[in-house]
């Protein structure tokens, strides 16, 4: 793992402004910074979502993310790479995931940010469980199903 990598799996909310500052401050050789932030949506598969819980596989999660970042570094010249992922209970509109990449030029930063997210979505051992409004007005919990479209996204990196 490069000393310019940061991987955080946390139960508490994170502050995107602070994370941008941590990523960009002092990265003087890098003129480009690309970030992706994923948040909890208020709907899924036709139902209103009121809460989300994320389970993960401690140990494998960090190992998986480190491997994905190492592969991104092998493809592009990158400066800093920070990946943050929430686990546990979270509310609608809260941030779930942050991927931030710096590079001397924008093309590498954009591409690496997307590559890391595409791999994370299909490989990193996280599982979402959502609380939704059922049709009869009651609340119910259900595991979120994986999407074939996420796997299809990986083909562009083959």
């Amino acid at each position: 793992m490069s000393s310019f990598d940061r991987i955080i799996v946390c139960e508490t909310p994170f502050d995107v402004a602070a994370e941008y500052a941590a990523l960009q401050r002092g990265a003087c050789a890098d003129g480009a910074c690309a970030m992706f932030v994923g948040s909890v949506r208020d709907f899924n598969a036709g139902n209103g979502v009121t809460q989300l819980a994320l389970e993960h596989y401690p140990g494998m999660t960090e190992k998986s993310l480190a491997g994905i970042i190492a592969d991104a570094r092998a493809r592009w010249g990158l400066g800093r790479v920070h990946v943050i992922h929430r686990v546990g209970a979270m509310q609608v509109n809260e941030e779930i995931v942050f991927v931030g990449v710096t590079s001397p030029h924008r093309q590498a930063a954009f591409a690496a940010c997307q590559y890391i997210m595409d791999r994370l979505k299909t490989e990193a051992p996280f599982w979402k469980r959502e609380t939704v409004h059922a049709e009869d007005g009651a609340s119910e919990e259900r595991w979120v199903d994986a999407r074939a479209s996420d796997t299809a996204e990986l083909e562009k990196w083959a």
Partner: peptide
């Protein structure tokens, strides 16, 4: 060894 469903993070 671990067994699990397809992942759904991000």
């Amino acid at each position: 060894v671990a067994f699990f469903p397809p992942v759904t993070g991000g």
